[in-house]
Design a protein around this nucleic acid. Sequence first.
RNA 1: GUCCCCAUCGUCUAGUGGCCUAGGACGACGGCCUCUCACGCCGUUAACAGGGGUUCAAAUCCCCUUGGGGACGCCA
Length: 465
Amino acid sequence: MTQVVTRFAPSPTGHLHIGGARTAIFNWLFARRHGGTFLLRIEDTDQLRSTQEMTDSILASMRWLGLDYDGEPSYQSKRFDVYNERIDELLASGGAYWCSCTPDEVEAMREQARARGLKPKYDGKCRRAGLGPGPGRVVRLAAPLTGTTLVADVVKGPVVFENAELDDMILRRADGTPTYNLAVVVDDASMDVTHVIRGDDHLNNTPKQILIYQALGLPLPHFGHVPMILGPDKKKMSKRHGATSVIDYRRDGYLPEALVNYLVRLGWSHGDQEIFSLAGLREVFSLEALGKSASVFNPEKLLWLNAHYIKEAPVARLAGLVNDVLGERGRPAADPDYLSAIIPLLQARSQTLVEMADKAACFLAADDALPIDAEAAAKFLTPEIKDHLLAIVAMLSALDGFGHAELEAAFNAYLETKAVKFKVLAQPIRVALTGSTASPGLFEMMEVLGEKRVLARLRRAATLC
RNA sequence: GUCCCCAUCGUCUAGUGGCCUAGGACGACGGCCUCUCACGCCGUUAACAGGGGUUCAAAUCCCCUUGGGGACGCCA
């Protein structure tokens, strides 16, 4: 295969969508797999809806996901002269023509076609009028009226379209700006893109674009249309499906490697393998392994992957991320060493960083202000337990070390002398230490909390009995 | 309405004519472990949309039906 060039071409009219992120991943992987080039192009020809803020957001999301691109991003808004040059060429060669029909007139034509059971399209009224430029006029492609156009899709296989179904689409708007279809073709050709990998929803655009390639005398790239991601209702993913942007997942405490792993498995597979890193993927990714059918987004599986990566992540990294979450919630920064001691106790118990931060809260709370669940207190901080708590305070104060092993040994001795089962003490102590009935193991927690906090919390709990 | 795409457990998928009594993963359910909650481990549940062909043989190939999705913009 010749040098591979792929590109990701988002429109900066919103944050990076997970569907867009997935096609970016596929393009990135294909290029990296073949030692090719991965380009980024911002499709901002719609000057009304495109914003710098969204461009920045998309760039940030890509960086977060670990998708680096080659060279600088290109902006279509800076290339209007290039597009217009090509449109003028088409005008001169007869491949395009001026059209004075108003949007309302065109809409009427479409209605008419629809009413006759045909595909709604422009009827070519101005095609032979030989119009020149003028206010309010657009430029349309003089598309072939007969014949067929073949899309040799890398994913879907060959797809044939009747040219009669295709439209004399607008190339240049009345305000002089180029339209999407024209700009994509000119850019993909001038950037020497070899593989256009994009969402399924563009399949119907492809024959139209091929017509433009042909009119311009440009060589065709390979096309590959990846199936869409659907919401739980099997409809195209949209805002009403909840979290749909990459930044939503970042905010909700997901690790980028989990999102990438999840997304790549939607519509692509490598045997029975479930766990993939970006580095591993670039060794095995292939377009042939892409599926053809749309897939439903499954939040539970993403959560499972996130939990998996949380268990694997280095403590120092998690500590930093949890601190960020804490900060976003207006909590003071935790001591890095203390937080790093807490994290290992929470890794197997947290599916997201947000959950981890929530669970870290009881470690970080001031001893006299630790929130204690009322129901838990009523059930476990009972009068008969009070003496035990006080006796344990005395016992622990006399202890030499405060490590897991010493603590466990001391408790075993206590249980023996008092002839009591650990079960009767465990929950009361847990409530005393954390304020709730669910937590990491007692001894490992006590070791992390340290003697001072443990004693203070036990004393406080005794007063509540 | 017209055109295009798609069709294996609830979901993501393996499967490229015999290895399929259809495999894995998430979820759900049950069990083990156990100081609680998790983790982990073990097990159960559950699918080739329907109908015709082709073939010695079909989840795999062809056709039809049905179902689902997408596209029909001076948005991208």
